[in-house]
Design a protein around this nucleic acid. Structure first.
Lengths: 239, 239
DNA sequence: ATGGATTTGTCCGTATGTATG
DNA sequence: CCATACATACGGACAAATCCA
């Protein structure tokens, strides 16, 4: 742990200075930052150092660089974590199975743990019920035609969690969904045979949330992950 | 029109090439990477580009650079997310309260959702019970003297989750703990008045887990966050 | 629509601090 | 103490992308 502190102390000063500059000037996401040349003068370092600091902040989504235009304050999303976790997932052929299992386990945990909050707020009408219904309809329709419905699936989960008012939880759900779907095709796991069951389970989740029935919601969540977890278990036993 | 498409396809980042190199050479965490000069030749780019790519990968903890020694494959921890979340929490004085509330909410959710797994594995003797007992004793002892016990607190939570065999969950718990404790001092929230209660609640969590009592464990978790959540609520109403 | 100004992307060369043997 | 290998930092130059008059 002393090692952690030591490495944190050694961290590049320039990036911290730029972060401090964002704070002192009270810049908000989307605001324009000084040019690299200006930062060189302001901070008294070379352009290379500024560029590397910018690179660091850009990978953390603290700033967003637009070629030929300028650098802006970023949205501070969880995309960096997604990238790191996806890479960890593909790092070893065996490890990817394990990594996916862990991601799914955490996804289920988050969905179940925040169920009360989701149901409460959704029941109170703080969710965009129409949009959620439309997403469910689209998923069912696509499932009938044997198509996948990745975008609708992700949108459904994030929209549902948006009602909780907990942006961190909402971003986490989206991030783990991204990791999940990025790692899946790397394994040779067949699509869950019953994609239709997955689609309708989303509808059951929504209905339960709108009705304020926490237990029904939790059952729907479990059912929703059912096909996937069976695929995972089958694949795991095959090795 | 071909020009526009071509410009969009030009996403061949040096960082991705280095990641591919790690995969194709089957390098594992701790393995030594080629030097910057070698990568320049292999990838056909300049040192600056390699350096910036390395910087990107280093901030994601995909590689770890040791000054004057070399570059190694990193541990792919969640430290980048911690840094980003902490900065987001600091971004606006009002937002930090909200950010901390969200972090605590997610922490509680994770602790409660994975309670069954933690208790099951701990009860089965897969946890380092002696080390955990020692940590609890240290926390109680320090609390008696009015001291804080940050390191022991973090170690306790991560060690407990290590028993689940879910490294992602373990890292998430540690990461949110880091965000939590990094944001706290920035607010002017007084230390929870009853740090002793927090210390003994850890002991109750451990006892319940060792005894295999999930419900008692969950009650201890809630009690453990009690002082903090009261401080948060009091601070929120004060604004 | 064309050109000029601004800004980031890439490259090169050099010098310095650090760890290893 | 020296020699080697390495990462770090600096400054200048040109290319490429974007915006605006």
């Amino acid at each position: 742990m002393a090692d952690r502190n030591a490495s944190r102390m050694r961290r590049s000063t320039t990036a911290d200075q730029i972060k401090q500059l964002i704070l002192t000037r009270d810049l908000k996401p989307g605001d324009l930052l000084p040019t690299e040349a200006e930062l060189c003068e302001t901070l008294g370092v070379s352009r290379s150092s500024v560029r590397e600091a910018m690179r660091t902040l850009a990978t953390l989504d603290i700033v967003e660089v637009r070629y030929g235009h300028g650098t802006f304050v970023g949205g501070m999303s969880l995309d960096p974590m997604v990238e790191a976790l996806v890479f960890r997932g593909v790092l070893s052929p065996d490890g990817s199975m394990e990594a996916l299992r862990e991601v799914v386990e955490v996804r289920v945990a988050l969905d179940l743990a925040l169920a009360e909050l989701v149901v409460e707020r959704t029941h109170a009408g703080e969710a965009d019920a129409d949009a959620l219904r439309a997403l469910v309809a689209e998923m069912v329709q696509r499932a009938e035609r044997g198509e996948s419905f990745l975008e609708a699936d992700r949108a459904f989960h994030t929209k549902l969690f948006a009602a909780t008012g907990n942006r961190l939880a909402e971003q986490l759900v989206g991030a783990f969904w991204d990791v999940h779907t990025a790692v899946i095709p790397l394994l040779e796991i067949p699509m869950p045979d019953d994609i239709r069951q997955t689609a309708v389970a989303h509808g059951e989740m929504l209905d339960a949330a709108l009705a304020g029935d926490v237990e029904a919601y939790r059952r729907a969540v479990v059912a929703h992950y059912g096909p996937l977890q069976r695929s995972l278990a089958a694949e795991a036993s095959r090795r």
